[in-house]
Measured scan of single mutants.
Amino acid sequence: TFEVERIVRKKIVHGNTSYLVKWKNYSSKDNTWETEDDIRTKYGDLVDDFEK
């Protein structure tokens, strides 16, 4: 199971928000862009903290 360590960046393309996710126990080269809906479902607190 993958676990988010932190959110690195945010991008908005054509009105759709995605977050660059750093995965726990993986290197930064393994970071992936994930949709806001996918990340918010399980890691809403991390998204809220990133947006502060």
Rank of each mutant, 00 (worst) to 15 (best):
G15A: 04
V8L: 14
F50V: 02
D49I: 12
G44C: 07
H14T: 06
G15R: 03
N25I: 06
T17E: 03
K22T: 04
D48M: 10
W33H: 01
V4L: 10
D30F: 15
E34P: 01
D45I: 10
L20M: 07
V21P: 02
D30Y: 15
K24S: 05
D30E: 13
R9H: 07
T35Y: 08
W23L: 02
E34L: 15
Y43K: 02
V4T: 01
D37V: 12
W23G: 01
D38F: 15
D48A: 12
T32Y: 02
K22M: 06
D37Q: 13
Y19R: 00
E34S: 04
G44Y: 09
D49Q: 13
V13C: 14
H14K: 13
V47D: 01
V47F: 06
E3Q: 10
E34G: 02
R40K: 10
R6T: 08
F2N: 12
E5Y: 04
K52D: 07
S28C: 15
T17I: 14
I7L: 07
N25V: 05
I39H: 01
S18N: 06
T1V: 14
D48L: 10
Y19E: 00
V21Y: 00
T17F: 04
W23F: 04
K29Y: 10
W33N: 00
E3Y: 07
E36T: 03
E5H: 03
E5T: 02
L46G: 03
N25R: 06
T35D: 12
D49L: 14
G15C: 06
D38I: 11
R9C: 15
E36Q: 06
K24M: 08
Y43L: 04
K10M: 06
E3P: 04
K10I: 06
G15H: 07
I12H: 04
T17L: 07
G44D: 05
N25W: 09
K29E: 12
R6E: 09
E34I: 15
V21H: 01
G44F: 10
I7D: 00
T41W: 11
R9T: 10
T1G: 14
K11G: 05
Y19H: 00
R40L: 08
W23Q: 00
V8I: 14
W33K: 00
D37A: 14
E36H: 05
Y26A: 13
E34D: 00
S18K: 12
T35M: 10
D49M: 14
E51R: 03
L20R: 04
T17R: 05
G15D: 04
E3W: 06
E34H: 10
V21A: 00
D45P: 11
D48Y: 07
Y43F: 11
G44I: 09
S27E: 10
L20V: 01
E5S: 03
T32M: 02
V4G: 03
D37K: 13
W23S: 00
F50W: 10
T17S: 05
D37T: 11
E34T: 05
I12C: 12
E3K: 04
K29W: 12
S28L: 07
F50E: 01
K52M: 12
H14W: 08
S27L: 10
S28H: 14
R6V: 10
I39A: 08
F2E: 10
W33A: 01
K11Q: 08
R9M: 14
K42L: 14
K22V: 07
W33C: 05
T32F: 02
D48G: 06
R40N: 05
V13Y: 09
V47R: 04
F2A: 14
W33E: 01
I7R: 01
D49T: 10
E34N: 03
V4H: 01
T1E: 12
D38P: 03
V47C: 03
E51D: 07
K11C: 14
Y43V: 04
Y43Q: 03
S18W: 15
S18D: 01
K11P: 00
R40Y: 06
F50C: 03
L46N: 03
R6D: 06
D48F: 08
G44S: 14
K42F: 12
V21E: 00
K24P: 02
V8F: 04
E36Y: 09
L46P: 02
W33I: 00
K24Q: 07
L46K: 07
N25T: 08
S27A: 09
N25Q: 06
K22N: 02
K22A: 06
K29I: 09
R6I: 09
V8S: 02
K42A: 12
G15V: 01
G44L: 09
I12E: 08
H14Q: 13
K52I: 09
D30R: 13
D38R: 11
V8W: 04
N31P: 07
Y26P: 09
E5W: 04
F2T: 11
L46E: 04
F50N: 02
S18F: 15
K10C: 08
T41Q: 13
E36F: 07
D45Y: 14
K29H: 09
T1H: 13
N31Q: 08
D45F: 14
I12W: 04
T35V: 08
I39R: 00
T35H: 10
D49K: 11
K29L: 12
K42P: 03
G15Q: 04
D48P: 04
W33Q: 01
S27G: 11
V8R: 02
K10G: 03
K52E: 08
E51A: 04
S18H: 15
L46H: 05
N25K: 07
E51G: 03
N16D: 08
K52R: 13
N25A: 07
W23Y: 08
L46W: 07
D45E: 12
V47M: 07
D45W: 14
Y43P: 01
D30T: 08
D38N: 12
D48N: 12
R6N: 06
